[in-house]
Simulated assay, not measured.
Amino acid sequence: MNMMHRKIWGWGAGAAAIVALLAWAFAPRPVAVEAGVVQAGRFEQGIEEDGRTRLRDRYTVSAPVAARLTRIVLREGDRVRAGDTVAVLLPVMSSMIDDRTAREAAARHAAASAGVQRAGARVDRARIAVEEAQLELHRTEKLAREGFLSASRLDSARLALSAVQREQEAARAEREVALQERAQAAAVLQPPGPVQAGQPLAVRSPVDGVVLKVAQPSEATLPAGAALLDIGDPARMEVVAELLTTDAVQAQPGRRAVIERWGGPPVQGRVRRVEPAAFTKVSALGIEEQRVKVLIDLDSPPAAWQVVGDGFRVTVRIITQSVDQAVLAPVGALFPFADGGMAVYRIDGKRARLQPVEVAGRNGSEAWIQSGLQAGQSVVVYPPPTVSEGRRVQVRKP
C-alpha cells in the first residue's frame, strides 16, 4: 500500500512538472523593445535644406590693357592687403607676319608713297594758283585806282585769291595725311624685334582678403579684360539655400537659422534676404520644382567657422516655430490611432499601455505633445507589430 502511494505521488509530481514545463514553454514571452524618455524642453520646428557657403563680396582682378603677364607668385589661400601688387604687366611685342601679309603690306606702302607724290603735286598746283591769283589781284587794284575797273571786279579778285589760298591749305593737309599713311605702312614692314624695356604696369588688390583662385598662374600674353585672379574676405561669409517657394514663404528675413553638417558644431545664423524671383530646377527624380534663393548671415564669431571656405556644402535649418518648456517625445514613438489621432505605447512597469496623445507639432526627431504624456515617462520607440495593450515588454539595453 505504501509502495502504491509513493508511485502515485511520483507520477503526480512528474505530471505536474511536465505541465509546468509546457506552461512555461508556451507562455507569451516579453517583447524586446526600444524605449525613449519623455522630456520637457524647447521644441523647434523648421525648414531643412541643403545649402552652400559663399563670400558676400568676391572681386575678380582683370588686366586693364592687352599686355604680357609675368608669372603670378601668389597662390590660393595667400593673404593680400588692399594696394598690394598681385600681378605685373609688360608691353607686348609686335605680331609676326607671313609672306602673303608682307606682300600686302608692301603694296600698301607703295600705294601710300604714290599718294604722297599725288598730294605733293596738288600742293604745287595750289601754290601756282595762289601766285596767279595774287598777280591778278595786283593788276585789278592798279586798274581800279586809275578808274578803269569797277569796285565789284576788285572784290571778285580778292575772293578768288582767298579761295585758292584755302585750296592750298587743303592740299597741304592731304599731303600730311598721305605722309602718315606711308609711315604707317612702313611700320608694318619692319621685322619684329625684341620687346623694348618699358615701364611695367602693377595690378593691385582692391581689398584686404585671401586669394581664392588664380586664373592665369603662368606667364602669358592676355587681351584687355582677361581675368587674373579672384580675391575675397573669408570673414564676410554667407550661406545660400535654394528653398521651395512654398517653404520660402515661411523663411522671412529675421528668422533664426542653424548651419549644421559642415564638419563642426552647429553655427547660428539669421535670414537676411529672400530673393524676389524664383527659378525652375529639376530634382533628382526628374520633377520640375520652383525654388528661390535664401541668403543667410552667420551670427557666430568667425573663430567658430574659420575652417569653412567658399563653396562648402552645409545643411540649413530655418526655425519657423520655437516653444519653451514643451513636453517632448521621440517622434518614432508615434503611430496612427482611431479617428485620425495619434497614440503611443507607454511603458507601465513591464507592460505596454496604449496611450492616445494630442500632437501640437513635430520635427525630424521630436514631437510636441499637447496632452496625454508627462515628462519622465517612458514610451516604446518604433513599436513592433507584436506589441499590444497590456503586453509584457522588455527594454533592450543600449
Rank of each mutant, 00 (worst) to 15 (best):
A20F: 11
G390R: 15
V316H: 06
A338K: 10
Q196F: 07
A185M: 06
A163R: 11
E181C: 06
A304R: 15
A367D: 05
R270E: 13
E358F: 04
W368Q: 10
I128V: 13
Q377H: 05
L212S: 10
P206D: 03
G51R: 00
G46Q: 05
E136L: 08
R42Y: 06
P336L: 05
A338T: 07
P265C: 11
H5W: 12
R273H: 11
G41T: 07
V359Q: 03
A326D: 04
F312R: 14
R118P: 01
A241T: 11
R68T: 08
I259N: 10
I347F: 01
R291K: 15
F43C: 09
A16C: 04
L189Y: 11
V80G: 01
M237W: 00
T101F: 04
R122L: 10
A119G: 14
K281M: 12
F26R: 13
P91W: 00
M3G: 14
Q184C: 05
A151M: 03
L243K: 00
A163I: 05
L22G: 15
R52Q: 14
M93V: 09
N2H: 12
E238R: 09
A170N: 07
F335R: 09
D124E: 12
R139Q: 12
A144E: 07
N2P: 09
H109C: 12
F148C: 04
A333F: 05
V214W: 01
Q190F: 07
A87F: 03
R391V: 09
L161G: 08
G36K: 00
R182Q: 13
K281Q: 15
A119T: 04
I296Y: 05
R108E: 15
L285I: 02
M96P: 13
P301M: 07
V73Y: 09
A119H: 02
I369T: 00
S62T: 14
G46L: 01
L295Y: 09
P91K: 02
K7L: 15
E288R: 14
R291C: 07
V214P: 08
R291P: 12
A17P: 01
L154D: 06
V393H: 02
W11C: 15
A133N: 03
D99Q: 15
F26Y: 14
G269S: 10
G264T: 03
R392L: 08
R68W: 04
V86C: 09
R172P: 06
V19W: 11
A105I: 02
P200C: 05
V274C: 06
F26S: 14
G263I: 01
P384C: 07
V359A: 06
V33R: 03
R127M: 06
A67N: 05
T85P: 08
F43R: 08
Q374K: 15
L189A: 10
L212P: 02
E288P: 11
E289V: 00
K350W: 00
A119W: 01
V294A: 08
I231G: 07
G193S: 10
A107M: 13
L298A: 08
I318D: 03
A67C: 05
P356I: 04
V38D: 02
V33E: 02
P253F: 08
S388P: 01
W368P: 04
Y345C: 03
A105S: 13
A129T: 01
